[in-house]
Amino acid sequence: MARFRYPALVLLGLAALILAPRGEGNYIIFIFTSWLTYSIAAMGLNLTLGYSGQISLAQASFMGIGAYITALLTLAGLPWIVGMLAAVAATFVVGLALGFPALRVKGHFLAFVTLAFNTLFFLVARNEDWLTGGNYGLSGMPRPNLIFASTMKNLPFYYFTLGVFVVAAALMWWIVHSPWGRAFKGLRENPVRAESLGVDTTRLTLLAFAIGSAYGGLAGALVSPLVQYIDPGSFALGISLKILLMVVVGGAGYFYGPMLGAAIVILLPEVLRFTEGYYLMIYATAVIVLMVFSPRGLMGLGERLWHRLTRPARQVRADMAGGAQL
């Protein structure tokens, strides 16, 4: 029975995702769709952060690159799928180019380089009016036209996004559980050991970062038709921080961590709307408290509680035991 429990739970989750927006208003469907979109971006960052242990602060700029490429291509009359493929390919290449110098140097230089990159991207998007529309941004992107249905309405577009999300998640599942993914984990837990076992750590980390960036590009390709309006502010450094917080709050290194984190970061403002301007303060305080008591995020907290109820915990994250190292 235990063998079937996990697939059954996944199917149950999928069924819930299919049924959830039925009969809901446009706004709720929009929130659900943007949750799926951000989940994809956060999933990509989770590969970089949770599995290979590098901090990236440029996920929003990858979303931005993907969104602008998709917007420009679809506005030029090309189908969405072309825009999406171009976005994914471009962000993968940019990820490689950005990660290569940063990862040559050990330590957390990737964090600094990506931080600079995100700000540079924002400046270019704001200043190069001829391409990006500057501060006014781009608008009126068409939604993808599938053979059997148009996605101009919100509900079909939700299902379209869900389809992309499921494919992206399945792909991620495969990456993480392939020998490759295990090497990523080995890298995070004990880089010296991984290296001595013949893992080319630099190349693997770079690859993880580039794939994570491509997920950002994919999310961007979905943002473009979802919002049908993009401007530089939607991809500023603050948004990168937001995506980073999604991963960490959910639980970096857990497969479902980014999805949980994205749900919280996207839905919490709706739930805490009554607190008005204090929302961000409450949120920031909660993150600090969470980091003190459960650095492995909510998934880690849940796991700890679960093990306390059932059986003694096994150690999952050896890298968290080493003390401050950055």
Binding site: I55, H108, M320, A324, L326
Partner: peptide, 10 residues
């Protein structure tokens, strides 16, 4: 004791 990353996030 939690390592560098949680502190950065905090």
């Amino acid at each position: 004791p939690n390592g560098g990353l949680p502190l950065i996030i905090a």
